[in-house]
Design a protein around this nucleic acid. Sequence first.
DNA 1: CGTACGTTTGATCTTTCTCAATAATGGTGG
DNA 2: CCACCATTATTGAGAAAGATCAAACGTACG
Lengths: 249, 249
Amino acid sequence: MSTNRHPLELLVRNLELRAPLPEEDRNAVLALSYTLRTLEPSTYTIREADPPKLCAVLVSGFAYRQKLTGDGSRQIVALQIPGDALDLQHLFLNTADHNVQMLTRGEVAFVPREELQELARSRPAVGHAILVKISVEASIFREWLLNVGRRESRARLAHLLCELAIRLDAEGLAEDYGYELPMTQEQLADTLGLTPVHVNRTLKTLEAEGLIIRNKRNISFPDWERMRGVGDFNQRYLHLEPQTPEQTI
Amino acid sequence: MSTNRHPLELLVRNLELRAPLPEEDRNAVLALSYTLRTLEPSTYTIREADPPKLCAVLVSGFAYRQKLTGDGSRQIVALQIPGDALDLQHLFLNTADHNVQMLTRGEVAFVPREELQELARSRPAVGHAILVKISVEASIFREWLLNVGRRESRARLAHLLCELAIRLDAEGLAEDYGYELPMTQEQLADTLGLTPVHVNRTLKTLEAEGLIIRNKRNISFPDWERMRGVGDFNQRYLHLEPQTPEQTI
DNA sequence: CGTACGTTTGATCTTTCTCAATAATGGTGG
DNA sequence: CCACCATTATTGAGAAAGATCAAACGTACG
């Protein structure tokens, strides 16, 4: 699970996916101080209503953002993969409006919030990369809203599986779009706004149609193009190209 | 419909709701150049896949953000009210990932994107205010995801009506939480992930329960506390308090 | 090898959708 | 001001997707 590389290198690579950084800025990110910790599944890194104090970077493993209704049902509003920073959504807010929990066991590097903010201030390229990342996460929220609000269960599930394939692939964590899906069907249900029973049936449908192959929690796609079609998946919303900052003359 | 005040004053007030600005910064915002135009309902101000060139500020009227599935169903992913800037979500992205359209007729001030970005760069307080606004919008996306994914139609509709009441009230556009709802039931349906028929029935239910009073498109709440309860509404996610920037020592 | 957790399946129920028709409303041209 | 048209709201009846309840089956792990 652990790497012997610098833990923050993953963050750099993650940021550089959309906003390449000059050598100096890259090194400045790597020079941030951090504490590395291994967290067990379902450990909270942020709790709703708390003031965010640290900025956590996911080094290995998976995490999710979650909100609860008054009567206790849960909606998972985001999935985070290695390299993602978990607190950017709260970097400019005083109070957390949702919870972040580990999905699997994983390593998290805690960076002092102030240090990161200072870095963003003093190094425009880093600041820009962070803003791009925040904006892309917001874009994913919008697509999920479309997914949950307007796609039937089969397309909805297929869309999520496609998104994970592309995001993991972009980080070099998928092989030929196949990957290990680290979620129970109950967690999938809470992500998709469905029940676990229905997720199970929908998974079986996709499987029966030859759209996915499951081995334990391993998912692969025998016919990616058809899968993309079923999931109505267009990756534009992931903004997976360099997002160049506007140049001031 | 039009005001004789400076159109950008609304933007300033909107930003200052969460991030008070020093006099100088306030004036700098007001000094931005702009073109004021009146737009008819359903006019696009941003189109998916286009590069955002201008930054539009809603001066009067309402607008919405929208995405479509491949088979043409629509999900409204955000509602914008007077004072809102319509392009902050794309300020750091090269390509629009959703559409923005006018909901009602209204006035829009178009500000050159570069000028706004330069202002954000040169005036940290303005930059901070913009980042807070972007972050709050993302928070609203998350709450909507919870709303659409995990609340039944009655609570879901009630929640949206509560949110609009609070947001409009914060801008001084509601009276005792009552307001004119400028949406057709079809638009409400596309916002909530429901069908127009079901929205109609759900509205009637709320009305029959004495939770709302409707006069044409005017909505008021005879018993706000009960309504809040039914909508499972907690306004924390709107972050309606000053979001103070982290201080560097 | 037993316990806890996750998956799978069946039967039935409910919410919400679909289809279709009717009524209201607002705006327009005469 | 009135008749007409397009849009929006309302209502009913029936269908369907997805939820609920309950049980059985697997699997991992102490």
